[in-house]
Amino acid sequence: MTWILRKSCIAAILCTLFICTLRADEAPKKQVTQEEEEQQDELVVSADRMEMQLDGRTVELTGNVRVEDSNMSLTALKMMVYLTESEKDNEKDGEQKKEPKKDEDASHSNMKLQRIEADGEVVLRKLDGTESAMGDHAVYDVKDDTILMTGNCSIIQGKNTMMGDKVVYDRKKAKINIQKPRLTIQIDKKGGKNNGALGNIFTDKDEKDDKKSDNKSQDDKQVEDKPKDDKQVKDKPKDDKTVEDKPKDDKAVEVKPKDNKPAEVKPKEDKTVNDKPKAEKQVENKTKEDKKVEDKTKDDGKKRRFFNW
């Protein structure tokens, strides 16, 4: 009996050891698979219509085409997906080929994504809403893991837009870069009027002028945005003194519309201004950029007033 007990105990111990070794072998495999899953990224492509060419391994998607991953979304009118047979899987298949195979396991394909080409109103947006990029054409290369956009490219970041020849989006870093950028920054005019260091000194006069300008029609707005001193500074620097010595004339000039109609208040001294239609036309035809320059020169005009006093 003792012999039997001893043998049974030994057998039980051996069995437990064997089972433990099996489980130990299984555990690291599971970890590897989890690691493999973490190292795999997934792209979800949705569309209204798909046409797949089995011979060419191409997939054509049309109608509200959208590609999404964890960081960004890309939309386009049309998209081409190129697939290829993976080499690593072929090596594995080669090892499996030596073993006796079943028809189902041996001949099953393992296609992988090679690249994606998007055409027509391509828009790339970060899911956090900070940046977006637009272009006519985009190509996603799996090897580089980047999206290259070409054709009327632009990046929008808040109120700022940046135009360029090419836009490159790095999927790993979730960053957008642009080649040969041309930046456009919007500046708010309202915030810049009374924020200058010398602005508070002239608040009374500036406020009066603003009230008058606010009550005027749209045709006069161009004139409102263009202080008289600046007009005369650009076109006729000699006349600045005459204007500065004649504040009443400034008011009369403000009232004048584009058509150079007679102003409501016309002192005799205003004739000098009326005789100069070319300057007014030049003023009227100025662009926004000129307005910015004029805004800058406002301070210069104010400074001059200060010193002339």
Binding site: Q39, L43, V44, D48, R49, M50, E51
Partner: peptide
């Protein structure tokens, strides 16, 4: 050897990092 899907097409592509 052409396959055409008419609507609600969805592709899931896995990329090896």
């Amino acid at each position: 050897h052409v396959i055409l899907l008419r609507s609600t097409v969805k592709l899931k592509l896995k990329i090896d990092k």
